[in-house]
């Protein structure tokens, strides 16, 4: 596993990936529980209570239960992953995550054979979350992955950035990171993981099914109705930053086999 991480990081730097600064990563965020402005999460997320933190693991697992975060992660190795992060709003960053492969966590709780999907849920602390009070979305925020996506070695649960504990506005204390999907799939501040047979509902799909599908793979050839996805702007280039071409699966072609035979314009 460690070698795999080095391999991934090595390949990333070979592609010339320069990480964004911690300041950029922690002050330009979408976390609608704390407001819809890009600076709102940084301004408001200090109210999030992250300790103690437990995660309910339920559904089709061998060892369900309410796990204290430390217990759930005990014995699993934290790895460094330098990933591209592409928002559906057509901006992107490069983020040096620290995290645990989701597959390691799922194997620890024991996935039963009938489980085909993983559902995730974000914490709701209404008194601490201004966006929840304003009902920007139907909270709690929910997301999901197909089991093969969840078990893919690129998929991690991040607990840190730049070897610092992950900031609240980035989804403390633990969040999903799926680098080949648009950022909103990478659900933050997770309190529940459910293994199930059916495709789980996802927040943006519920809010606007015409615009947001379940898969939401980064795909320059399939436009979001309101934003072209062909190009993106890397954060950090200033007022005259040039656009760059968006890569299929955000530059992670190794996941293409997961979608073989699927019409990606239909399953967007």
């Amino acid at each position: 596993v460690g070698l795999g991480a080095i391999g991934l990081a090595g390949r990333a730097s070979a592609q010339g990936l320069e990480p964004n600064t911690l300041e950029e990563i922690t002050s330009y965020n979408n976390f609608y529980e704390f407001g819809t402005g890009k600076g709102d999460p940084a301004a408001n997320a200090h109210k999030l209570v992250t300790s103690p933190w437990s995660i309910k693991v339920d559904g089709m697992v061998d060892r369900p239960g309410d796990y204290a975060l430390d217990d759930l992660l005990a014995g699993l190795s934290v790895e460094d992953r330098l990933y591209r992060f592409r928002c559906v709003e057509a901006w992107s960053m490069v983020i040096p995550w620290n995290g645990i492969e989701l597959a390691d966590i799922l194997n620890k709780v024991g996935v039963q054979s009938g489980a085909r999907y993983v559902a995730f849920e974000t914490v709701v602390q209404p008194e601490n979350m201004i966006g929840v009070q304003r009902r920007v979305l139907d909270f709690p925020y929910v997301e999901g992955l197909r089991i093969d996506e969840a078990m893919h070695p690129l998929t991690i649960m991040a607990t840190g950035i730049y070897d610092e504990p992950i900031y609240n506005q980035n989804g403390a204390p633990i969040r999903l990171v799926v680098p080949w999907k648009y950022g909103f799939k990478s659900i933050k501040s997770i309190v529940r993981i459910t293994l199930q047979e059916d495709e789980p509902p996802t927040s943006w799909n519920k809010a606007n099914p015409r615009e947001y599908g379940f898969y939401s793979n980064v795909n320059p050839n399939v436009d979001h109705p309101r934003w072209s996805q062909a190009t993106e702007r890397r954060i950090g280039g200033g007022l005259f930053a040039a656009r760059q071409d968006t890569l299929m699966f955000n530059g992670y072609p190794e996941v293409a086999s997961l979608y073989e035979g699927m019409d990606l314009t239909r399953f967007y």
Partner: peptide, 10 residues
């Protein structure tokens, strides 16, 4: 407010 992404903010 222009710290990170000045184009969209402007």
């Amino acid at each position: 407010p222009y710290l990170v992404e000045p184009i969209n903010v402007l």
